[in-house]
């Protein structure tokens, strides 16, 4: 029996449109494997993460500046509508220790921007010294500037990553600031994954 492969050409489409196309295609079904072609790093990373999130077998082939990503739905794939809804995991009550820290700016609080950035640097250093660290550190808006080359907090983010903290930067935000190629720690993510993680459990938001 031959396998049915559906192809999507997402070249030139800004992030997150390739992920949205993939999600719609998975919802429609009618194929064994979905192959999406993209031409930028943020879309590639987002599709790889989306594929894993949607419990697909994920393969990526690089070819002449393009990436062809093959998503093969597995038996246990969740319905896409459920994936979008980002349900709380079993046993998650919304209370308890912080699992996720959201940094939505490169400084803490309003007022003097130099003081705000000083406080953020101090917070991230203190986190590296803490006995307990969160599972994930999500960076949005100007918070992504913390994770790029030249950031005063880069070394501390790398220390946190070495301690098992997953550092994830918003791809749209990196692209907005023209910093995608300068990301020096962690991975690139999209709003679907960010929203999912923010709904996973207790979250601390700073920015």
């Amino acid at each position: 029996m031959s396998l049915i492969c559906r192809t999507l050409d997402a070249r030139g489409l800004p992030c997150p449109q390739p992920v949205i196309l993939a999600r719609k295609a998975l919802a429609e079904g009618g194929f064994d494997t979905l192959e999406i072609t993209v031409d930028d790093a943020a879309s590639r990373e987002n599709l790889l993460k989306f594929g894993a999130y949607a419990k697909c077998l994920v393969e990526a082939v690089e070819e002449g500046g393009l990436t062809r990503i093959r998503l093969t739905p597995q038996g246990l794939a969740p319905a896409p509508a459920q994936a979008d809804a980002c349900p709380l995991p079993e046993g998650s009550s919304g209370g308890g220790p912080v699992e996720v820290v959201l940094l939505s700016a490169d400084g803490i609080g309003q007022g003097d921007p130099d003081l705000a950035r000083l406080l953020m640097r101090g917070f991230l250093y203190t986190l590296t010294e803490a006995e307990r660290v969160p599972r994930r550190l999500l960076l949005m808006n100007s918070g992504v500037k913390l994770a790029v080359e030249g950031s005063e907090s880069l070394a501390n983010l790398q220390k946190l990553e070495a301690r098992g903290v997953e550092v994830l930067a918003c791809g749209t935000c990196l692209e907005f600031f023209g910093l995608t190629s300068r990301l020096a720690v962690g991975g690139i993510t999209n709003m679907y994954e960010l929203a999912g993680h923010l709904m996973e459990g207790p979250t601390l938001s700073l920015g």
């Binding site: 000083l118 640097r121 101090g122 917070f123 250093y125 203190t126 005063e152 070394a155």
Partner: peptide
């Protein structure tokens, strides 16, 4: 490295 002064160290500045 600029760091917050730990609580066991007394300083006027943080």
């Amino acid at each position: 490295e600029l760091i917050p002064v730990p609580r066991q160290v007394q300083s006027l500045c943080g």
